[in-house]
Simulated assay, not measured.
Amino acid sequence: MIKKETIIINEIRHGYIMCEQDKKAPVILYLHGGPGSPEYPIFQSQLNSSYLCEFNVCYYDHRGCGLSFNKKSELSLDLLIEDILDITKYLIEKYDKKKIILVAHSFGTYLGIKAVQSHPEYYSAYVGISQITNVRESEKRIYNDLLQVCKEKKDYKGRKLLKKNKRSSSKLSNHYMQNVKGRLLKRYQLGLTREPLPTYFMIQKLFSFPQYSFKNKLEYCKGLIHSSRLLFSMTKDINLFQNSCDFKVPIYFIHGIYDYQVSLPLGKEYFGQLDSPKKELIIFEESAHFPNFEEPDKFNEILNSLFSVEQV
């Protein structure tokens, strides 16, 4: 059963899509990327019917976007992490669980890994998809990788564009991220997905998503702009290498080999420093930034093998 739900926490409305199978099944809290980009409304129709069919999955829309849109509410990374902990406690109580599984993607991985580290007692495991580590260093490496790609492809205009915008790349300006990096990633299918997305794909999927009202769809667009404007500058200085790498829960990283949104080599370095009861890095060979949506059967199989009902 797929249903739209909202709850009030600390006088703020929080919304989510709940894919409920059986209340006895393990519960997954899924944190989307962005900032401000709930993924389930966009990719829901791409997923097969067996996707995470053995779990109760809560696709939570972060404060300030999607079903949780409110342009008057405060936005900060710390507040988002607090919200995640509150939602976690709510799900534990609602489904009568001792712990739940936390799955996060891209921007959500920073929030997720901080939540898991601060309150490991709430979580049986953490899965980071396209894990963020050190944003500035990641972008520096991707800039150099793109120079190499352009050289190999004999894309002299692309190399010239990158070199012309080297200073703006170090500042992570909106112009560089959207019009330089974004353009080249799309050209070489190294961005969101390995296979190119049709023109207006996201708009079409959003406005055909049945669980969102028309108002929800407009608020999705407003929330994307609102969240990006207020939170993007805060994400630039994220550096998990500066924090403790000790964790008390199993840690799993999943990364697409063609992902140039987040540096895979840097993710491997961070993964190597992690100390946890169990850890595993899983590479998807046919994916870019969305391995869970690009290879849903493989993702589903991995989560089912890691988190069977008996294990959780």
Score class of each variant (00 low, 15 high):
113 I>V: 14
228 S>C: 09
27 V>M: 10
20 E>H: 05
222 K>Q: 13
125 A>Q: 03
38 P>I: 01
185 L>Q: 01
129 I>R: 02
308 S>F: 05
138 S>L: 12
137 E>T: 10
212 Y>L: 13
140 K>H: 09
59 Y>S: 07
173 S>Q: 05
82 E>Y: 06
155 D>G: 02
14 H>G: 05
288 A>L: 01
40 Y>H: 10
134 N>E: 09
245 C>M: 10
84 I>S: 14
266 L>V: 05
245 C>D: 09
261 Q>T: 11
102 L>I: 07
47 L>Y: 02
77 L>P: 04
96 D>W: 09
176 Y>M: 00
137 E>N: 10
205 K>C: 09
109 T>P: 11
242 Q>H: 07
12 I>L: 14
29 L>P: 00
303 L>R: 11
148 Q>P: 02
86 D>T: 05
286 E>H: 14
21 Q>Y: 07
206 L>E: 03
204 Q>T: 13
128 G>M: 05
271 F>R: 07
97 K>P: 04
272 G>L: 06
46 Q>V: 13
273 Q>N: 09
189 Q>R: 10
48 N>I: 02
233 S>M: 06
306 L>C: 08
122 Y>A: 10
296 P>L: 09
105 H>S: 07
108 G>M: 04
34 G>Q: 02
190 L>M: 10
262 V>F: 01
248 K>Y: 04
173 S>A: 06
99 K>Y: 12
85 L>D: 06
227 S>K: 03
205 K>W: 03
149 V>E: 03
10 N>T: 06
47 L>F: 03
153 K>F: 01
200 Y>L: 12
139 E>K: 15
61 D>M: 09
65 C>Y: 02
225 I>K: 14
259 D>G: 00
134 N>H: 15
206 L>K: 04
2 I>E: 08
127 V>W: 05
113 I>S: 01
180 V>C: 01
286 E>L: 15
109 T>C: 08
158 G>Q: 00
